[in-house]
Nucleic acid binder design. Structure first.
Length: 493
DNA sequence: AAAAAAC
């Protein structure tokens, strides 16, 4: 079975071959033919299954005939995160090399004007995260009634993120005659309801999970006696030193922990950068690019990077924190051992993590994960009375130029009693955050703590609560004097 | 116990 058997055109087959693919994956085999016929597709599949190409290829085929009008895109792909949207765009570029398709990527955190200019010129493919798409729409810069194909990617994740009302709204703005390709890793009731409502006799395709746990990934844990993050960071360094790490992702549960761990690794001379949703988009993009190009060895990440991102050939995944939901564990370690390669997943487990570890073991269907013996390390470095490691840090920390001295006391574990180690990460970012190495974007320059507070209070006020989204639906914003009547009218379906 | 996403 080859791509040629799926009914794709020579132009497209050439691009696929040029990209180095020969055999379609199961979901591609099953989804592409009905999609080419114009049928709706409901794909139940995770990332790593070749899902993206299963919708980009038939879309390119379909869009190769016809031309886009200004502000009326012909197709729309919705993705939950900016990175994922950008990845879909790359996919279109890769497979669309022989087609003259125009494309716009509407995501937050980047300039509005460039996106708008593209919309004005007319695009065949619009790829977006829901927030920015609706923003454009409400400014009257975008019409969705020319949509021929609409794709919803990672729908269950959209549900987790509270995007479902937005998705429904967007569905209602597109013509009923559209073709819908809908993908979700799981089918919770809310998602089922959406597909019942908006898909027309879809071809349902379910592919099994990509080989995750047992097959290609070696999983281990390290028991850490203290839940002091400082000790965990020391263990992490020790662990990295013992492993033959080509490149690795280090997952933390909190954004603040991501910052601290990244800074700490940098100070110890590791090539590491943080990625999470509070960092400037330019920095996120740059970091991922570096990681993909092997210019970066360690990506310290929140769960923004746990799902969906296509980062090939990661040799190691480190779970600095035990994920709260066992699903997240599966997604995190799924970043390694991809495409049949070998991978290692290592996790730091403190006594407080027992419950979550149990649920992870249950989920992956294992009685236990083999434990690495770190007793010698802990004997040499007991958490409570370990001498301040600052000295050890300083001799490697030539990069961290400023103000280290004035806050030395803040970083001493002895200052804190185990009881109030409740928010271990909380006071430490303030300590380390300003030593930001080679970053020059303005977000980074602000004192971090304040930045976080501003953002979270903004979110609380503005965030997607029902009232504000209703307001959003009713108000027509930014259209000036010329508001076409059909735009102020609700679209009946 | 979190994270993600719009100015």
């Amino acid at each position: 079975m080859s791509f040629a058997d799926l009914g794709l055109s020579p132009k497209l087959l050439e691009a696929i071959a040029a990209a180095g693919y020969e055999t379609p994956t199961p979901i591609q085999k099953e989804a592409i033919p009905p999609a080419l016929e114009g049928k709706d597709v409901l794909g139940i599949a995770q990332t790593g299954t070749g899902k993206t190409a299963s919708f980009t290829l038939p879309m390119i085929e379909r869009l190769s005939k016809g031309r886009a009008k200004a502000r009326m895109p012909r197709s729309l792909v919705l993705a939950p995160t900016r990175e994922l949207a950008a990845q879909v765009a790359e996919n279109f570029e890769k497979y669309g090399v022989n087609h003259k398709l125009t494309m716009a990527l509407l995501i937050g955190g980047v300039s509005f004007g460039d996106q708008d200019a593209k919309l004005t010129r007319g695009v065949d493919v619009l790829i977006a995260t829901p927030g920015r798409l609706i923003d454009h729409f409400e400014r009257g810069r975008l019409l969705l009634n020319g949509i021929e194909v609409m794709v919803v990617d990672e729908a269950d994740r959209m549900l987790d993120m509270g995007f479902i009302p937005d998705i429904e709204k967007i569905f209602k703005l597109t013509p009923m005659t559209r073709q819908t390709l809908f993908f979700s890793a799981t089918m919770p009731p809310e998602i089922q309801r959406i597909t019942d409502q908006f898909l027309h006799q879809p071809v349902r395709i379910e592919v099994s999970k990509p080989a995750t746990t047992a097959d290609t990934i070696t999983q281990n844990i390290v028991r850490v006696p203290s839940k002091d993050d400082k000790q965990k960071r020391a263990v992490l360094r020790e662990l990295i030193g013992k492993e033959d790490v080509k490149n690795g992702i280090i997952f933390c549960n909190r954004k603040s922990t991501v910052d601290v761990v990244a800074k700490s690794l940098q100070k110890h001379g590791f090539n590491a950068r943080p990625i999470h949703g509070d960092l400037a988009q330019s920095f996120r993009t740059e970091t991922l690019d570096k990681f993909r190009n092997d210019d970066l060895q360690f990506l310290v990440a929140s769960d923004v990077a746990a799902r969906g991102l296509d980062i090939p050939a990661v040799s190691h995944v480190f779970n600095f924190d035990v994920p709260i939901h066992s699903d997240d564990y599966v997604h995190r370690i799924g970043r390694t051992g991809r495409a049949g390669r070998k991978g290692a997943a290592l996790m730091l487990v403190t006594p407080a993590d027992g419950k979550h570890l149990d649920s992870i073991l249950k989920t992956i269907g294992a009685k236990e994960i083999e434990e690495l013996d770190f007793s010698e390390f802990f004997e040499a470095n007991p958490a409570s009375e370990r001498p301040d490691r600052k000295g050890g840090r300083d001799d490697k920390g030539g990069k961290s130029r400023s103000r280290r001295g004035e806050r030395s006391s803040g970083d001493q574990p002895s200052r804190r009693k185990p009881k109030d180690a409740k928010e271990p990460a909380n006071d430490q970012p303030a300590v380390e955050a300003q030593v930001e190495p080679e970053q020059d974007n303005d977000n980074q320059a602000e004192p971090k703590k304040q930045r976080d507070e501003t953002r979270s209070s903004k979110r609380r006020r503005g965030g997607g609560d029902a009232r504000s989204s209703r307001r959003r639906e009713e108000a027509v914003v930014g259209l000036g004097d010329h508001v076409p009547a059909f735009l102020t009218r609700k679209v009946a379906r």
